[in-house]
């Protein structure tokens, strides 16, 4: 494993290795919540927060508990438990302090639990053998990348609100097509850095 600077990982995970646009992880809430910029930004912040924290927590749990005990094969269940508990905590905090956000996120807040982008980050950092700082940069970067993608999508969807879209493509259909085109655009960044 070559030593990559954490900042490189940070920027790479926003642009070249964007969770949504190059790995296609975390698509469900990306499609469903991207109808409004404000809500998208809030969900993006929640995802970023959960990603940054769970990547560090999972890193610590993995290297201080699972590896010494030779229990690496338990990583799926352990990661998922940690993520679930953390999302539960975030939900409580949002319900208490950001009530209207709580209602506008609705079911998608608890669904962060099974957002594949989040488990994806935890698994990638293990597979790519990142150290703690790199993992943290990767977590924050991926979260910001996810936020960037969903907010950009919400902006585009707002722009095309008045556009004539073929009946069968309204809603999710056109969103998926736009996602594809955005992914093509982001493909232009690839090759600038390699982080795996």
């Amino acid at each position: 494993m070559i030593e990559i600077h954490p900042l490189v990982i940070f920027f790479a995970s926003i642009f070249t290795n964007n969770m949504i646009l190059s790995n296609f992880l975390g698509m469900c809430s990306f499609i469903a919540v991207s109808s409004e910029i404000k809500t998208s930004l809030s969900l993006g912040q929640a995802v970023t927060f959960v990603l940054a924290t769970t990547s560090v927590l999972n890193y610590i749990v993995y290297y201080t508990i699972l590896v010494p005990l030779g229990l690496e094969y338990l990583r799926f269940i352990v990661f998922i438990i940690v993520i679930a508990a953390f999302v539960q905590l975030v939900e409580m905090i949002i319900e208490r302090y950001f009530e209207s956000l709580y209602y506008s996120l609705g079911i998608f807040l608890p669904l962060i639990t099974v957002n594949c982008a989040i488990l994806g980050v935890s698994l990638f950092m293990i597979i790519r053998e990142y150290n703690l700082i790199q993992s943290f940069a990767f977590g924050v970067g991926s979260g910001l990348g996810w936020t960037l993608a969903i907010v950009a999508m919400a902006g585009i969807r707002k722009k095309i609100m008045g556009a004539k879209i073929p009946k069968g493509l309204e809603g999710a259909g056109i969103t998926l097509i736009i996602t594809g085109i955005m992914a093509l655009a982001f493909l232009g960044f690839s090759g600038i850095v390699q982080i795996q």
Binding site: L74, V78, I81, L89
Partner: peptide, 26 residues
């Protein structure tokens, strides 16, 4: 034994954390 203990330990710790949150934040 180690597997069961590890999983129970981690789960128990998180459960403790969440019940504290429930008593304070919620």
């Amino acid at each position: 034994g180690v597997t069961v203990l590890t999983i129970s330990g981690i789960t128990g710790l998180l459960a403790l954390l969440l019940s504290i949150a429930n008593k304070t934040i919620a």
